[in-house]
Simulated scan of single mutants.
Amino acid sequence: MSTLIRPPPREPSQSAIEALLELTQLSDIDVDLFTNTRPLWHPPGARGIFGGTAIAQTLAAAQRTIPSDFTIHSMHCYFVLAGNSEIPIIYHVERVRSGKSFATRTVQARQRGRVIFTTTMSFVKENSGGEQRVEHTTPMPALAPPVEGMDDMDHGGSATGPFQSQRIEILNNDSPEPHTKKTRQWMKARGRISDQGGHEAHLSALAYMSDSYFVGTIARVHKLWRYSALRKSNTKSSIDEDVLKKLLAMDDESLKRVKFVDEADLQRIQRLRNGEDPRGNENVREIGMMVSLDHAIYFHNPRKFRADEWMFIEMETPWAGDGRGLVFQRMYARDGTLIATCVQEGLVRLKQTNESKL
């Protein structure tokens, strides 16, 4: 049973992402206990549930314990164990501090009594910064707007998934220096988030989407082969198996129009389609294991955006080594407002040469 309580009928006014992230408060047990209302999503090839679910639902649970004039400004998360999509999650909110200007909450996500995810969040009272303020922001780069009806084949390649995205060509993709490259995309929640959800629903939706393609940035800037490992249970891939099937079914001209497929990937997919070793004669490095370790979000303008309108996301990685990698992410509203900055560290282990001989 993937939910503790039978899910109620979905509210017609809810968007897909609202329904997906809906929580049930277990008030008869403890007002600070919550559980997932809807079944959990396990991406094909992933170790467990989509990490964005835990990030967003812990935020949603904490927001239920905060006064309406307080807003999240930062959250720091750790992925402890892979979540099982067949088991309900219990979210326990601890009210660490409730001050005049700031409030602190910790939330633990548990399955069968074991912590699978933990986060600490800080909330700030609106307009508590004073009349005179120190202000600056990194501007959004100039680029072409998103094109309606040309979304990536993401979220299982489904046209009914909770969010849409359009990946853009990697900036400086031909550079030999991975740290100079930037992966970019447009993203938004599918449909319209209901008025009843308030700004909290938009924040939860942003938190959910912030985990999309995040640590996979490292594989993309290093041009690592990231498709053949999809069926391994310990791999968090930047592309799922259903998408790979669609890519294999495309002709070469159609593949060239898919913005997240670079020339190296194109050649490998062509070989895979022909039943050949996708590596050819190349000494191709392949992802052996890629999972998120931690995730931080700093919310800069939490009430000045809508998650169901196009947002621009830009990611770069300053460092990778010792089997780990770090990625920075900036999220902008369509009008150029910097909404959030995110940081994620993940395990990024290559398939070792001797593994292929086992």
Score class of each variant (00 low, 15 high):
Met153Ala: 04
Glu355Pro: 10
Glu286Gln: 12
Ser165Leu: 04
Pro44Trp: 08
His199Arg: 02
Lys125Gly: 03
Ile313Thr: 12
Thr353Asp: 15
Asp154Arg: 00
Asp32Gln: 07
Val221Gly: 09
Asp28Cys: 07
Leu21Met: 12
Gly113His: 11
Ser101Asn: 04
Met1Tyr: 14
Arg257Val: 10
His73Phe: 01
Gly197Pro: 10
Asp154Lys: 00
Glu263Ala: 11
Ile17Ser: 04
Trp319Ala: 08
Gln196Phe: 06
Arg334Pro: 07
His179Met: 11
Leu171Asn: 10
Val147Glu: 07
Glu11Arg: 11
Asn354Arg: 15
Gly325Tyr: 03
Glu241Val: 10
Arg226Trp: 03
Leu247Asp: 11
Ala60Asn: 12
Glu86Val: 06
Asn127His: 10
Gly130Gln: 09
Lys236Pro: 04
Ser2Thr: 14
Leu347Val: 15
Gln164Asn: 09
Phe299Tyr: 09
Asp265Tyr: 01
Pro39Gln: 14
Lys351Asp: 12
Phe328Thr: 15
Phe50Trp: 09
Ala333Gly: 13
Thr341Gly: 08
Asp252Ala: 11
His295Asp: 13
Ser228Leu: 11
Glu148Cys: 07
Asp240Leu: 04
Glu263Phe: 06
Leu230Lys: 03
Pro178Trp: 06
Thr65Asn: 06
Gly161Arg: 03
Thr37Leu: 03
Ile89Pro: 05
Thr3Cys: 12
Ala340Val: 14
Val147Ala: 08
Phe123Arg: 05
Leu247Asn: 09
Val258Trp: 02
Ala61Phe: 01
His42Arg: 15
